[in-house]
Design a protein around this nucleic acid. Sequence first.
DNA 1: CCTTGACCTTCCCGTCACTGGAACCCCTAT
DNA 2: ATAGGGGTTCCAGTGACGGGAAGGTCAAGG
Lengths: 128, 128
Amino acid sequence: MNISDVAEQTGLPAKTIRYYEEIGLVTPQRSANGYRVFAESDAHKLTFLARARNLGFSIEDCRNLLALWEDRSRASADVRRIAAQHLDDIERRINDLAAMRDTLSDLVQKCSGDDRPDCPILADLAGS
Amino acid sequence: MNISDVAEQTGLPAKTIRYYEEIGLVTPQRSANGYRVFAESDAHKLTFLARARNLGFSIEDCRNLLALWEDRSRASADVRRIAAQHLDDIERRINDLAAMRDTLSDLVQKCSGDDRPDCPILADLAGS
DNA sequence: CCTTGACCTTCCCGTCACTGGAACCCCTAT
DNA sequence: ATAGGGGTTCCAGTGACGGGAAGGTCAAGG
């Protein structure tokens, strides 16, 4: 498979796949003309990566998850730890965003949004 | 005021304040020795920026909000539009994160997390 | 007067995970 | 021969800073 085939199959842009090779997440063969040649196993890895990235795992997490996936003698506890930490991180981010949303939604509601200059949003930002 | 004073007062790191000057958000005076000298109005601007950044506004949004704040003939509708768009963005991000959280929390719960290799998390990432 | 230490300055590189674009090579069809 | 649609590398930029080096400035103490 050439890069555009595996790009279509995995949903990843070709640029991203090249980047993943550059940082050592996949190591496709090369054909005589210098083109990358992706085996099925490469495509599977990339699919794995695409899914993990969609769940918000960092590249380093992905690297570790991939290594665990390849390691038949892994302990599921190691996988679980990575996922649980990431879950905590996501929950923290959700909480942060929810706090912003609450404040903002309050301010937006209070603002008349007409052509007059009085604005509770600016008043709040200025320290009211 | 020197930079460390205004840093303490606003809670912004000195590095960030220099960066804000570099991108034109504040323009403190300079004293003869080259040190930045911050007037009260500069400190107020920086406080405004710190609050807006805490609400997740981008630097460009901050720039626009600051301009509206300084413009006594502004229409509150302009402020509201920026805030409402940002609110939409935040809600979208919360939804994305919540979807990740739901999937992840499901997978983490299903994973035994012991020393055996069987792992629903990896199974899911691999496409089950 | 000299030194120490706490400031301040600029400048450059690194972050994270790509994305865009330039310049160039390869292969097939017309 | 040419046109097009692949592929390749390399370089620069993104957002919003943070780290750290190299060096100037200032007030206090010996």
